[in-house]
Design a protein around this nucleic acid. Structure first.
Lengths: 212, 212
DNA sequence: TAACTTTTGTGTACACTTTCACAAAAATAG
DNA sequence: CTATTTTTGTGAAAGTGTACACAAAAGTTA
Protein backbone atom coordinates (compact mmCIF):
# COMPACT_ATOMS: atom_id res chain seq x y z
CA UNK A 1 0.00 0.00 0.00
CA UNK A 2 2.42 2.61 1.25
CA UNK A 3 0.54 5.53 -0.30
CA UNK A 4 1.22 9.00 1.01
CA UNK A 5 -1.30 11.24 2.67
CA UNK A 6 -1.60 9.36 5.91
CA UNK A 7 -4.21 10.87 8.23
CA UNK A 8 -3.03 12.27 11.56
CA UNK A 9 -5.61 10.15 13.39
CA UNK A 10 -3.92 7.07 11.99
CA UNK A 11 -0.61 8.19 13.44
CA UNK A 12 -2.10 8.91 16.82
CA UNK A 13 -3.68 5.45 16.79
CA UNK A 14 -0.31 3.89 15.94
CA UNK A 15 0.99 5.56 19.07
CA UNK A 16 -1.89 3.99 20.98
CA UNK A 17 -1.18 0.54 19.54
CA UNK A 18 2.44 0.94 20.53
CA UNK A 19 1.45 1.57 24.11
CA UNK A 20 -0.83 -1.47 24.14
CA UNK A 21 1.88 -3.64 22.63
CA UNK A 22 4.31 -2.58 25.34
CA UNK A 23 1.80 -3.60 27.98
CA UNK A 24 1.20 -6.92 26.23
CA UNK A 25 4.92 -7.57 26.06
CA UNK A 26 5.21 -6.98 29.80
CA UNK A 27 2.33 -9.37 30.35
CA UNK A 28 4.26 -11.98 28.39
CA UNK A 29 1.87 -12.14 25.44
CA UNK A 30 3.77 -13.10 22.29
CA UNK A 31 1.10 -13.11 19.58
CA UNK A 32 -2.08 -11.07 19.27
CA UNK A 33 -4.86 -10.81 16.71
CA UNK A 34 -6.30 -7.52 15.54
CA UNK A 35 -9.55 -8.55 17.25
CA UNK A 36 -7.92 -8.88 20.66
CA UNK A 37 -5.78 -5.79 20.24
CA UNK A 38 -8.88 -3.91 19.16
CA UNK A 39 -10.74 -4.95 22.27
CA UNK A 40 -7.80 -3.96 24.44
CA UNK A 41 -7.45 -0.44 23.08
CA UNK A 42 -11.02 0.25 22.03
CA UNK A 43 -10.50 0.37 18.28
CA UNK A 44 -12.29 -1.58 15.53
CA UNK A 45 -10.07 -4.46 14.31
CA UNK A 46 -10.52 -3.53 10.64
CA UNK A 47 -9.38 -0.05 11.54
CA UNK A 48 -6.20 -1.43 13.05
CA UNK A 49 -5.45 -3.51 9.97
CA UNK A 50 -6.14 -0.53 7.68
CA UNK A 51 -3.87 1.69 9.74
CA UNK A 52 -1.04 -0.81 9.55
CA UNK A 53 -1.64 -1.36 5.83
CA UNK A 54 -0.45 2.19 5.14
CA UNK A 55 3.04 1.00 5.99
CA UNK A 56 3.20 -2.59 4.81
CA UNK A 57 2.20 -6.08 5.90
CA UNK A 58 3.08 -6.99 9.44
CA UNK A 59 0.78 -9.85 10.35
CA UNK A 60 0.64 -13.55 9.58
CA UNK A 61 -2.70 -14.79 8.27
CA UNK A 62 -4.26 -17.36 10.53
CA UNK A 63 -1.98 -16.28 13.38
CA UNK A 64 -2.03 -12.56 14.07
CA UNK A 65 0.83 -10.21 14.93
CA UNK A 66 3.99 -11.04 16.81
CA UNK A 67 3.91 -8.52 19.64
CA UNK A 68 7.65 -7.92 19.81
CA UNK A 69 8.07 -7.58 16.05
CA UNK A 70 5.10 -5.29 15.55
CA UNK A 71 6.27 -3.12 18.41
CA UNK A 72 9.71 -2.78 16.85
CA UNK A 73 8.19 -2.04 13.45
CA UNK A 74 5.90 0.64 14.82
CA UNK A 75 8.74 2.23 16.74
CA UNK A 76 10.80 2.38 13.59
CA UNK A 77 7.91 3.75 11.51
CA UNK A 78 7.26 6.49 14.02
CA UNK A 79 10.91 7.34 14.44
CA UNK A 80 10.88 6.22 18.04
CA UNK A 81 13.86 3.90 17.73
CA UNK A 82 16.08 6.65 19.05
CA UNK A 83 15.97 9.34 21.75
CA UNK A 84 14.62 12.76 20.78
CA UNK A 85 15.83 15.93 22.41
CA UNK A 86 13.11 18.45 23.09
CA UNK A 87 13.32 22.18 23.80
CA UNK A 88 10.96 23.74 26.31
CA UNK A 89 10.08 27.42 26.01
CA UNK A 90 8.52 28.99 29.09
CA UNK A 91 9.39 27.80 32.60
CA UNK A 92 6.25 29.04 34.34
CA UNK A 93 3.92 26.79 36.30
CA UNK A 94 3.09 24.60 33.35
CA UNK A 95 6.67 24.51 32.12
CA UNK A 96 7.90 23.37 35.53
CA UNK A 97 5.28 20.63 35.65
CA UNK A 98 6.44 19.41 32.25
CA UNK A 99 10.06 19.45 33.38
CA UNK A 100 9.25 17.16 36.25
CA UNK A 101 6.99 14.87 34.21
CA UNK A 102 8.62 11.46 34.21
CA UNK A 103 6.57 10.11 31.36
CA UNK A 104 8.71 11.69 28.63
CA UNK A 105 11.68 9.49 29.37
CA UNK A 106 9.60 6.34 28.99
CA UNK A 107 8.56 7.57 25.57
CA UNK A 108 12.14 8.29 24.54
CA UNK A 109 11.92 12.07 24.83
CA UNK A 110 14.22 14.27 26.85
CA UNK A 111 13.83 17.94 27.57
CA UNK A 112 17.47 18.87 27.20
CA UNK A 113 17.11 22.66 27.10
CA UNK A 114 14.67 25.11 28.62
CA UNK A 115 14.29 28.81 27.89
CA UNK A 116 12.67 31.70 29.70
CA UNK A 117 12.96 35.45 29.56
CA UNK A 118 13.41 35.44 33.34
CA UNK A 119 16.18 33.41 34.97
CA UNK A 120 15.77 33.21 38.74
CA UNK A 121 16.44 30.76 41.55
CA UNK A 122 12.99 29.24 41.39
CA UNK A 123 13.41 28.41 37.72
CA UNK A 124 16.98 27.16 38.15
CA UNK A 125 15.79 24.79 40.84
CA UNK A 126 12.99 23.47 38.60
CA UNK A 127 15.42 22.32 35.94
CA UNK A 128 16.54 18.71 36.49
CA UNK A 129 19.89 17.02 35.86
CA UNK A 130 20.75 16.77 32.20
CA UNK A 131 18.75 19.83 31.19
CA UNK A 132 20.20 23.30 30.68
CA UNK A 133 18.39 26.56 31.36
CA UNK A 134 19.05 29.53 29.08
CA UNK A 135 17.79 33.05 28.69
CA UNK A 136 15.28 33.41 25.86
CA UNK A 137 17.73 35.48 23.88
CA UNK A 138 19.94 32.40 23.45
CA UNK A 139 17.17 30.32 21.94
CA UNK A 140 18.07 30.43 18.28
CA UNK A 141 21.75 29.84 18.84
CA UNK A 142 21.35 26.92 21.24
CA UNK A 143 18.63 25.09 19.30
CA UNK A 144 20.54 25.47 16.07
CA UNK A 145 23.76 24.20 17.61
CA UNK A 146 22.08 21.23 19.29
CA UNK A 147 20.07 20.49 16.13
CA UNK A 148 16.87 20.11 18.15
CA UNK A 149 13.78 19.51 16.02
CA UNK A 150 10.93 19.39 18.54
CA UNK A 151 9.81 22.13 20.91
CA UNK A 152 7.15 22.59 23.57
CA UNK A 153 5.66 26.07 23.83
CA UNK A 154 4.38 26.91 27.32
CA UNK A 155 4.46 30.71 27.25
CA UNK A 156 1.73 33.33 27.60
CA UNK A 157 -0.54 33.47 24.55
CA UNK A 158 0.52 37.04 23.78
CA UNK A 159 4.08 35.83 23.14
CA UNK A 160 3.35 32.49 21.51
CA UNK A 161 3.41 33.55 17.86
CA UNK A 162 6.66 35.47 18.32
CA UNK A 163 8.28 32.50 20.05
CA UNK A 164 7.09 30.14 17.33
CA UNK A 165 8.50 32.36 14.58
CA UNK A 166 11.86 32.25 16.32
CA UNK A 167 11.66 28.49 16.79
CA UNK A 168 10.92 27.95 13.11
CA UNK A 169 13.89 30.12 12.19
CA UNK A 170 16.03 27.97 14.47
CA UNK A 171 15.14 24.83 12.58
CA UNK A 172 12.37 23.40 14.76
CA UNK A 173 10.04 21.13 12.76
CA UNK A 174 7.48 20.02 15.34
CA UNK A 175 5.77 22.14 17.98
CA UNK A 176 3.56 21.12 20.88
CA UNK A 177 1.67 24.26 21.79
CA UNK A 178 -0.08 24.90 25.10
CA UNK A 179 -0.85 28.57 24.44
CA UNK A 180 -4.51 29.24 23.59
CA UNK A 181 -3.90 30.71 20.13
CA UNK A 182 -3.96 29.36 16.59
CA UNK A 183 -0.37 29.58 15.41
CA UNK A 184 0.69 30.17 11.84
CA UNK A 185 3.70 28.20 10.69
CA UNK A 186 5.21 27.55 7.26
CA UNK A 187 4.57 24.32 5.37
CA UNK A 188 6.86 21.58 6.65
CA UNK A 189 6.39 22.48 10.32
CA UNK A 190 3.79 20.54 12.31
CA UNK A 191 1.91 21.96 15.28
CA UNK A 192 -0.23 20.12 17.78
CA UNK A 193 -2.42 22.16 20.10
CA UNK A 194 -3.29 21.35 23.66
CA UNK A 195 -5.94 23.81 24.69
CA UNK A 196 -7.34 23.34 28.17
CA UNK A 197 -9.91 26.09 27.72
CA UNK A 198 -11.46 24.48 24.67
CA UNK A 199 -11.43 21.02 26.24
CA UNK A 200 -13.23 22.22 29.35
CA UNK A 201 -15.74 24.20 27.31
CA UNK A 202 -16.55 21.16 25.17
CA UNK A 203 -17.12 19.13 28.34
CA UNK A 204 -19.34 21.88 29.67
CA UNK A 205 -21.51 21.82 26.57
CA UNK A 206 -22.21 18.12 26.90
CA UNK A 207 -22.68 18.29 30.65
CA UNK A 208 -24.97 21.27 30.34
CA UNK A 209 -27.28 19.97 27.62
CA UNK A 210 -29.56 17.38 29.10
CA UNK A 211 -29.52 15.24 25.94
CA UNK A 212 -26.55 13.46 24.48
CA UNK B 1 -32.19 23.38 12.06
CA UNK B 2 -31.60 22.35 15.66
CA UNK B 3 -31.21 18.68 14.92
CA UNK B 4 -29.52 16.54 17.51
CA UNK B 5 -26.31 14.65 17.04
CA UNK B 6 -23.95 17.59 16.96
CA UNK B 7 -20.34 16.60 16.27
CA UNK B 8 -17.76 17.29 18.95
CA UNK B 9 -15.58 19.15 16.46
CA UNK B 10 -18.41 21.61 15.96
CA UNK B 11 -18.51 22.28 19.68
CA UNK B 12 -14.76 22.78 19.91
CA UNK B 13 -15.00 25.23 17.02
CA UNK B 14 -17.77 27.12 18.79
CA UNK B 15 -15.35 27.49 21.66
CA UNK B 16 -12.80 28.85 19.20
CA UNK B 17 -15.30 31.33 17.74
CA UNK B 18 -16.13 32.47 21.23
CA UNK B 19 -12.51 33.28 21.90
CA UNK B 20 -12.20 35.20 18.63
CA UNK B 21 -15.38 37.12 19.36
CA UNK B 22 -14.04 38.15 22.76
CA UNK B 23 -10.91 39.49 21.10
CA UNK B 24 -12.97 41.32 18.49
CA UNK B 25 -15.12 42.86 21.20
CA UNK B 26 -12.02 44.14 22.96
CA UNK B 27 -10.81 45.60 19.67
CA UNK B 28 -14.10 47.46 19.43
CA UNK B 29 -15.41 45.55 16.40
CA UNK B 30 -19.22 45.51 16.48
CA UNK B 31 -20.16 43.51 13.39
CA UNK B 32 -18.31 40.75 11.58
CA UNK B 33 -19.01 38.57 8.56
CA UNK B 34 -18.37 34.85 8.48
CA UNK B 35 -15.66 35.57 5.89
CA UNK B 36 -13.71 37.86 8.22
CA UNK B 37 -14.24 35.67 11.26
CA UNK B 38 -13.09 32.72 9.20
CA UNK B 39 -9.91 34.48 8.22
CA UNK B 40 -9.27 35.45 11.82
CA UNK B 41 -9.59 31.97 13.26
CA UNK B 42 -8.52 29.89 10.28
CA UNK B 43 -11.86 28.24 9.51
CA UNK B 44 -13.80 28.11 6.26
CA UNK B 45 -16.68 30.64 6.37
CA UNK B 46 -19.23 28.07 5.21
CA UNK B 47 -18.09 25.85 8.05
CA UNK B 48 -18.77 28.61 10.54
CA UNK B 49 -22.25 29.18 9.16
CA UNK B 50 -22.99 25.45 9.22
CA UNK B 51 -21.76 25.14 12.79
CA UNK B 52 -24.00 27.97 13.91
CA UNK B 53 -26.94 26.59 11.93
CA UNK B 54 -27.12 23.64 14.31
CA UNK B 55 -28.45 26.03 16.93
CA UNK B 56 -30.47 28.58 15.01
CA UNK B 57 -30.08 31.73 12.94
CA UNK B 58 -27.82 34.35 14.44
CA UNK B 59 -26.76 36.53 11.53
CA UNK B 60 -28.37 39.24 9.44
CA UNK B 61 -28.16 38.73 5.69
CA UNK B 62 -26.24 41.44 3.96
CA UNK B 63 -24.71 42.50 7.29
CA UNK B 64 -23.06 39.68 9.20
CA UNK B 65 -23.08 38.88 12.91
CA UNK B 66 -23.28 41.35 15.78
CA UNK B 67 -20.21 40.47 17.82
CA UNK B 68 -21.71 41.13 21.23
CA UNK B 69 -24.93 39.25 20.48
CA UNK B 70 -23.25 36.23 18.92
CA UNK B 71 -20.85 36.03 21.82
CA UNK B 72 -23.74 36.02 24.29
CA UNK B 73 -25.61 33.44 22.25
CA UNK B 74 -22.62 31.12 22.04
CA UNK B 75 -21.98 31.47 25.76
CA UNK B 76 -25.56 30.52 26.47
CA UNK B 77 -25.48 27.59 24.02
CA UNK B 78 -22.33 26.20 25.57
CA UNK B 79 -23.54 26.71 29.11
CA UNK B 80 -20.84 29.28 29.80
CA UNK B 81 -23.19 31.95 31.09
CA UNK B 82 -22.43 30.82 34.61
CA UNK B 83 -19.44 29.73 36.67
CA UNK B 84 -18.62 26.01 36.76
CA UNK B 85 -17.00 24.40 39.76
CA UNK B 86 -14.40 21.80 38.90
CA UNK B 87 -12.89 19.03 41.01
CA UNK B 88 -9.21 18.16 40.62
CA UNK B 89 -8.01 14.67 41.47
CA UNK B 90 -4.27 14.31 41.92
CA UNK B 91 -2.14 17.14 43.28
CA UNK B 92 1.20 16.01 41.87
CA UNK B 93 3.33 18.13 39.58
CA UNK B 94 0.69 18.42 36.91
CA UNK B 95 -2.10 18.94 39.40
CA UNK B 96 -0.20 21.79 41.05
CA UNK B 97 0.43 23.43 37.68
CA UNK B 98 -3.28 23.25 36.92
CA UNK B 99 -4.12 24.73 40.32
CA UNK B 100 -1.98 27.75 39.57
CA UNK B 101 -3.19 28.15 35.99
CA UNK B 102 -4.96 31.50 35.79
CA UNK B 103 -6.68 30.77 32.49
CA UNK B 104 -9.52 28.81 34.05
CA UNK B 105 -10.99 31.84 35.75
CA UNK B 106 -11.18 33.74 32.49
CA UNK B 107 -13.15 30.87 31.02
CA UNK B 108 -15.54 30.80 33.96
CA UNK B 109 -14.14 27.67 35.59
CA UNK B 110 -13.01 27.36 39.18
CA UNK B 111 -11.20 24.46 40.76
CA UNK B 112 -13.03 24.54 44.05
CA UNK B 113 -11.89 21.18 45.45
CA UNK B 114 -8.75 19.11 45.06
CA UNK B 115 -8.15 15.53 46.20
CA UNK B 116 -5.06 13.45 46.80
CA UNK B 117 -4.29 10.29 48.70
CA UNK B 118 -1.40 12.14 50.34
CA UNK B 119 -1.99 15.37 52.24
CA UNK B 120 1.28 17.12 53.11
CA UNK B 121 2.58 20.65 53.52
CA UNK B 122 3.73 20.89 49.91
CA UNK B 123 0.27 20.06 48.64
CA UNK B 124 -1.48 22.31 51.14
CA UNK B 125 0.67 25.21 50.00
CA UNK B 126 -0.15 24.52 46.36
CA UNK B 127 -3.87 24.97 46.90
CA UNK B 128 -4.96 28.60 46.39
CA UNK B 129 -7.60 30.69 48.15
CA UNK B 130 -11.12 29.47 47.48
CA UNK B 131 -10.10 25.87 46.90
CA UNK B 132 -10.29 23.12 49.49
CA UNK B 133 -7.93 20.15 49.71
CA UNK B 134 -9.33 16.80 50.85
CA UNK B 135 -8.06 13.29 51.28
CA UNK B 136 -9.05 11.00 48.41
CA UNK B 137 -11.32 9.03 50.72
CA UNK B 138 -13.59 12.07 50.98
CA UNK B 139 -14.07 12.39 47.24
CA UNK B 140 -17.51 10.90 46.80
CA UNK B 141 -19.00 12.68 49.77
CA UNK B 142 -17.63 16.12 48.91
CA UNK B 143 -18.40 16.03 45.19
CA UNK B 144 -21.90 14.80 45.84
CA UNK B 145 -22.57 17.47 48.44
CA UNK B 146 -21.18 20.28 46.27
CA UNK B 147 -23.02 18.91 43.21
CA UNK B 148 -19.86 19.24 41.08
CA UNK B 149 -20.29 17.91 37.54
CA UNK B 150 -16.82 18.35 35.99
CA UNK B 151 -13.55 16.79 37.11
CA UNK B 152 -9.93 16.85 36.02
CA UNK B 153 -8.01 13.60 36.48
CA UNK B 154 -4.28 14.10 36.98
CA UNK B 155 -3.32 10.89 38.75
CA UNK B 156 -0.97 8.05 37.83
CA UNK B 157 -2.32 5.92 34.99
CA UNK B 158 -2.49 2.85 37.21
CA UNK B 159 -5.11 4.58 39.38
CA UNK B 160 -7.02 6.46 36.72
CA UNK B 161 -9.79 3.94 36.01
CA UNK B 162 -10.46 3.43 39.71
CA UNK B 163 -10.64 7.19 40.28
CA UNK B 164 -12.95 7.63 37.30
CA UNK B 165 -15.30 4.91 38.54
CA UNK B 166 -15.55 6.72 41.86
CA UNK B 167 -16.10 10.06 40.13
CA UNK B 168 -18.93 8.66 38.03
CA UNK B 169 -20.55 7.24 41.17
CA UNK B 170 -20.29 10.71 42.72
CA UNK B 171 -22.32 12.27 39.92
CA UNK B 172 -19.54 13.65 37.72
CA UNK B 173 -20.69 14.02 34.09
CA UNK B 174 -17.60 15.42 32.35
CA UNK B 175 -13.99 14.31 32.79
CA UNK B 176 -10.79 15.87 31.49
CA UNK B 177 -8.25 13.08 31.69
CA UNK B 178 -4.47 13.56 31.66
CA UNK B 179 -3.61 9.93 32.43
CA UNK B 180 -2.33 7.93 29.47
CA UNK B 181 -5.08 5.30 29.46
CA UNK B 182 -8.35 4.82 27.60
CA UNK B 183 -11.04 5.12 30.24
CA UNK B 184 -14.34 3.32 30.18
CA UNK B 185 -17.33 5.33 31.39
CA UNK B 186 -21.06 4.73 31.18
CA UNK B 187 -23.20 6.45 28.56
CA UNK B 188 -24.03 9.98 29.62
CA UNK B 189 -20.54 10.74 30.89
CA UNK B 190 -18.15 12.56 28.55
CA UNK B 191 -14.38 12.14 28.64
CA UNK B 192 -11.77 14.25 26.87
CA UNK B 193 -8.22 12.96 26.78
CA UNK B 194 -5.06 15.02 26.90
CA UNK B 195 -2.20 12.65 26.19
CA UNK B 196 1.23 14.25 26.01
CA UNK B 197 2.91 11.02 24.97
CA UNK B 198 0.70 10.56 21.92
CA UNK B 199 1.00 14.20 20.93
CA UNK B 200 4.78 14.09 21.03
CA UNK B 201 4.90 10.81 19.15
CA UNK B 202 2.68 12.17 16.38
CA UNK B 203 4.98 15.17 16.08
CA UNK B 204 7.95 12.85 15.92
CA UNK B 205 6.44 10.88 13.06
CA UNK B 206 5.99 13.97 10.92
CA UNK B 207 9.36 15.40 11.86
CA UNK B 208 11.05 12.10 11.21
CA UNK B 209 9.55 11.34 7.80
CA UNK B 210 11.13 13.59 5.26
CA UNK B 211 7.91 14.00 3.31
CA UNK B 212 4.76 15.68 4.59
C1' DT C 1 -2.08 -34.04 0.66
C1' DA C 2 -6.66 -32.52 1.31
C1' DA C 3 -10.09 -30.55 4.24
C1' DC C 4 -10.75 -27.27 7.85
C1' DT C 5 -9.84 -23.27 10.85
C1' DT C 6 -8.12 -18.89 11.74
C1' DT C 7 -6.98 -14.29 10.76
C1' DT C 8 -4.96 -11.08 7.73
C1' DG C 9 -5.23 -7.59 3.88
C1' DT C 10 -8.30 -5.02 1.11
C1' DG C 11 -12.34 -3.81 -2.23
C1' DT C 12 -16.51 -1.76 -1.36
C1' DA C 13 -20.19 0.41 0.94
C1' DC C 14 -21.45 3.48 4.40
C1' DA C 15 -21.24 7.57 7.40
C1' DC C 16 -19.65 11.72 8.56
C1' DT C 17 -17.42 16.41 7.48
C1' DT C 18 -16.19 19.94 4.71
C1' DT C 19 -16.68 22.88 0.86
C1' DC C 20 -19.14 24.77 -2.97
C1' DA C 21 -22.63 27.40 -4.93
C1' DC C 22 -26.74 29.81 -5.01
C1' DA C 23 -31.44 31.38 -3.66
C1' DA C 24 -33.38 34.23 -0.05
C1' DA C 25 -33.18 38.09 2.85
C1' DA C 26 -31.71 42.48 4.38
C1' DA C 27 -29.70 46.89 3.61
C1' DT C 28 -28.45 50.69 0.50
C1' DA C 29 -28.55 53.66 -3.47
C1' DG C 30 -30.69 55.82 -7.29
C1' DC D 1 -40.17 51.70 -5.26
C1' DT D 2 -36.94 49.21 -8.00
C1' DA D 3 -32.23 47.82 -8.83
C1' DT D 4 -27.98 46.64 -6.79
C1' DT D 5 -25.02 44.91 -3.30
C1' DT D 6 -23.91 42.17 0.45
C1' DT D 7 -23.94 38.21 3.21
C1' DT D 8 -26.51 34.72 5.36
C1' DG D 9 -28.55 29.94 5.46
C1' DT D 10 -28.66 25.62 3.23
C1' DG D 11 -29.15 21.84 -0.51
C1' DA D 12 -26.05 19.26 -2.98
C1' DA D 13 -21.32 17.76 -4.21
C1' DA D 14 -16.90 16.44 -2.89
C1' DG D 15 -13.82 14.63 0.27
C1' DT D 16 -12.34 11.86 4.20
C1' DG D 17 -12.47 8.36 7.49
C1' DT D 18 -14.72 4.05 9.32
C1' DA D 19 -16.71 -0.51 9.14
C1' DC D 20 -18.23 -4.55 6.71
C1' DA D 21 -17.44 -8.66 4.45
C1' DC D 22 -14.85 -11.87 2.02
C1' DA D 23 -10.99 -13.90 -0.77
C1' DA D 24 -6.29 -15.21 0.11
C1' DA D 25 -2.80 -17.02 2.95
C1' DA D 26 -0.95 -19.56 6.73
C1' DG D 27 -1.34 -23.02 10.03
C1' DT D 28 -3.52 -27.46 11.87
C1' DT D 29 -5.59 -31.89 11.73
C1' DA D 30 -6.56 -36.27 9.76
Amino acid sequence: MRKWKIPEVTISRLSLYLRCLSELEEEGVEVISSAELGKKCGINPAQIRKDLAYFGEFGTRGVGYYVKDLKEDLKRIMGLDREWEVALVGVGNLGRALLSYQGFKRHGFKISVAFDKVIDEERKKAVPEGCELYHASMMEEVIRKKKIKIAIVAVHFSEAQRVVDALVKSGIKGILNFAPVRLSVPKGVVVRHIDLGIELEVLTFFVNTKMY
